[in-house]
Amino acid sequence: MDNSSNGYHISFFRPTTAHAKANRNIVIWLILIWVIAIFGFQILLRVIEKPTPEPVFVEFQSVWSNIAQSNASAEELRTFGKSTLSVLGKIAISDKEKAVLDNALSNSAYQLKPDSLRSDLVFRIKNFESIKSEINNINDPAYIIAKRAFEAEFMPIMMFSNTDVRVKFLPLELKSEGIESLQAETIKSLPGIMQKYLVHNQSFLTDFKFLGFPFHYFYTAVFLLILFIGLCWLYCVKIDRLNTKLNLND
């Protein structure tokens, strides 16, 4: 990159003074560490990762074909309903995906009820929907009573354990519209939605715990920042020493 011929030139890669040469070497070393630490680690994560399903996704897959063919047992319906709740509990889902999951959950709840009680269930869900649309805050007594009634009703039907948080979401996700059957959109989209939210890129670097963190998370969110400060500190110390050694003054 040197296009001068009279000595007055600066080129990072062709330093002409002792200070410039030493500075170049320090900078190259620091940048190498910087690049490998940041991008090298992410590339490593990418290379070794494997799509890893949550246990609930495996359960979903085991029952899905029977569910789609309307041929599922009560146990399979429970598993199916619970698996949809596992995704509904993730707050990042879009409205369109939520509608699909709501239909799947509501239908499984509907089918788990005896034939004679299904119309009553639909009536009560509609009533709850009406209460939800009218209340101003979630401490409304009518709302709380209706919600807790659903929780108590489905706790044994779905066989939730006492510590299963999904029972808390269930009343909020029951929808009366289209409850009698799985909608065409649900059958088409549900497997993709479940895969999207229940399969994750994991490896030993994400599974290994360090100071409570998944290791890769600690490395990126905490360690890299320490490293950056360390690199900056090191550069300043090195340059100060270099300037002292060469008797240079800023």
């Binding site: 509990g89 948080v165 939210y197 994400t206």
Partner: peptide
Amino acid sequence: EFAMVPSPEYAMPWDHA
């Protein structure tokens, strides 16, 4: 309650979710 369903998508790299 201070409770939630498992959400690995929060911490896993470039998650589809």
